[in-house]
């Protein structure tokens, strides 16, 4: 379950913030946390990202790794639903999954992506699509986990730059400081994904109550800059 150097560049394409899969319009809960005054500077952004990484990020990374390792994507999609009590976040995950599907099929056409697109025309949970995309690109479960974990923190960091006019160097330094934790989360995710091939309950279910509560409040705002 390791990256072959021959495909490493594909991971850069997949994890690029400019990969056209809709991520730019989502703050990963940062907009709500900023409005609540919970995130206001690089330190609180880092704490936010650390909490999101260890919860939603870990779950996403494990789902992506399991999908890349060949677990049944429809069962993973169901497991993702059970791990997402907030309907706003389930909808966001499916919306982003559909957008990721479009970009992935254009970049790395594959029967597995086609099959999931046909089975879930309104979108499967994004990490599941991400995992299949990684596999289609010749990447392994660890790559998929890294991409998902990184996305869990890069989205909020970018949003904080836009919403707080945070110094972009500070925001990027937050991501750099989190790098060792990202690696660890990706490794945990892969280990869980391997067990999940036998028993889906082995997938992590780490939850962040404030993210769930705030996501519903945010979805009801009449005016907001980010979709989530």
């Amino acid at each position: 379950m390791t990256t072959t150097t021959a495909t490493r560049a594909a991971l850069l394409v997949l994890a690029d913030g400019r990969f056209p899969a809709g991520g730019h319009a989502h703050s990963g809960g940062a907009e709500a946390a900023i409005a609540a005054g919970r995130v206001s500077d690089p330190a609180s952004l880092e704490a936010f990202c650390r909490g999101r990484l260890g919860t939603a990020g870990l779950v996403a990374a494990a789902l992506a790794a399991a999908a890349a390792a060949g677990a049944n994507p429809l069962l993973l999609d169901e497991a993702a639903d059970a791990r997402t009590p907030s309907p706003a976040l389930r909808m966001t995950a499916r919306k982003l999954g559909r957008q990721m599907m479009r970009a992935a099929r254009a970049c790395w056409p594959s029967p597995a992506l086609d099959a999931l697109a046909a089975a879930r025309p309104r979108g499967a949970h994004q990490p599941v699509v991400l995992g299949l995309a990684a596999a289609a690109a010749g990447l392994g479960p660890l790559d998929a986990a890294h991409a998902a974990a990184y996305e869990a923190v890069s989205g909020p960091a970018t949003a904080a730059v836009r919403l707080l006019s945070l110094d972009p160097f500070d925001a990027t330094a937050v991501l750099a400081r989190l790098a060792p934790e990202l690696d660890r989360v990706a490794e945990l995710a892969v280990a869980a994904a391997e067990s999940a091939l036998d028993d889906l309950d082995a997938l992590p279910a780490a939850s962040a109550p404030l993210l769930e509560i705030a996501a519903e409040a945010h979805a009801a705002w009449p005016v907001r800059l980010f979709a989530s």
Binding site: R18, F19, G23, H24, A25, S27, R162, A227
Partner: peptide, 21 residues
């Protein structure tokens, strides 16, 4: 209505996935 994360130009030019949907 498509939400654009404060960047309409990104949504109409660089990452058009939400608009296509």
């Amino acid at each position: 209505a498509v939400e654009t994360g404060a960047c309409p130009h990104t949504a109409i030019r660089d990452d058009i996935s939400a608009n296509l949907e």
